[in-house]
Design a protein around this nucleic acid. Structure first.
Ligand SMILES: [Mn+2]
Ligand SMILES: [Mn+2]
Ligand SMILES: [Zn+2]
Ligand SMILES: [Zn+2]
Lengths: 133, 133
DNA sequence: CTTATAAAGGATAAAAATTATCCTTTATGT
DNA sequence: ACATAAAGGATAATTTTTATCCTTTATAAG
């Protein structure tokens, strides 16, 4: 149970009990979608409103406290903002894992072949996790 | 004005006028979201139903006739299925471009560092297009 | 060229997802 | 402790997507 009070404040977010709980849910789950997050939160706050989940996630996104990961043919998942990484998604069980990959060669390939100025890269690799193979 | 009758049938889709028009809209736009596609189609079929757009795009997705591209902080766009490629997205004007990149080195990096068996990779590079820099 | 029929289209209702509103409660700075 | 802007809960409204129902049509068989 990490205390995210300071981390929330650093992102200009008031440290409410609900937000602290969301932070911990994101931390322990790693990647979580809105519905699952809502279910999780209901266990702790039996009367929490779904609107509170949406309002908080959206605000946290604006303040770069959390990040959205769009999953092919599935709902987006959210995670606490961390240093750049890519994602592995199991098409069978849905598990999402982080993976650090060196994107430099790829990005320099882009530089030589286009006039775009890239500032962000989103890479999602889909396949089967060990367990589902 | 390409005739997509055969191409539709190859994917087990009846060649209706609406589907032929959707095919041409996708071809000429390259990448298009549901709303824009609906507006386009309304010009040709003044009484086309939005439900027809959804039903067709979903069926075309199931039959691999079209592909979805999830765009960070924006609506998904759709395109006629073509050989593997990545995407460049301009965060200013929203334009989406195709780019062929060699993913082999990256994928072999994945193989050595995880037990996942990758079958698909989705890469979206966001930044500024020439015009918007 | 008919005809039969499963599938597709249009209109619209229903459901699901997301956002807005309103009033009460609370985190935080003074 | 107090003042206040912001957040939470309840719920309405809006937006997005899917389902339903009936009519029309693409397609294959004869
Ligand atoms: Mn991650
Ligand atoms: Mn493309
Ligand atoms: Zn799995
Ligand atoms: Zn641009």
């Amino acid at each position: 149970m990490i205390n995210y009070t300071d981390e929330l404040r650093r992102h200009n977010l008031k440290a409410t009990p609900q937000r602290l709980a969301i932070s911990n849910a994101l931390h322990s789950y790693g990647h979580i979608n809105i519905d699952t997050l809502y279910e999780m939160m209901l266990k702790k706050f039996s009367s929490i409103s779904l609107a509170t989940i949406y309002k908080n996630i959206n605000l946290m996104l604006e303040n770069s406290y959390v990040q959205e990961v769009k999953i092919p043919q599935n709902k987006s998942v959210y995670e606490l903002t961390k240093s750049y990484h890519s994602h592995l998604v199991c098409t069978e069980c849905g598990v999402v894992e982080d993976i650090k990959l060196n994107m430099i060669p790829l990005l320099s390939e882009v530089t030589t072949s286009t006039t775009f100025e890239i500032s962000k890269t989103d890479l999602v690799l889909s396949g089967l996790c060990k367990k589902c193979q």
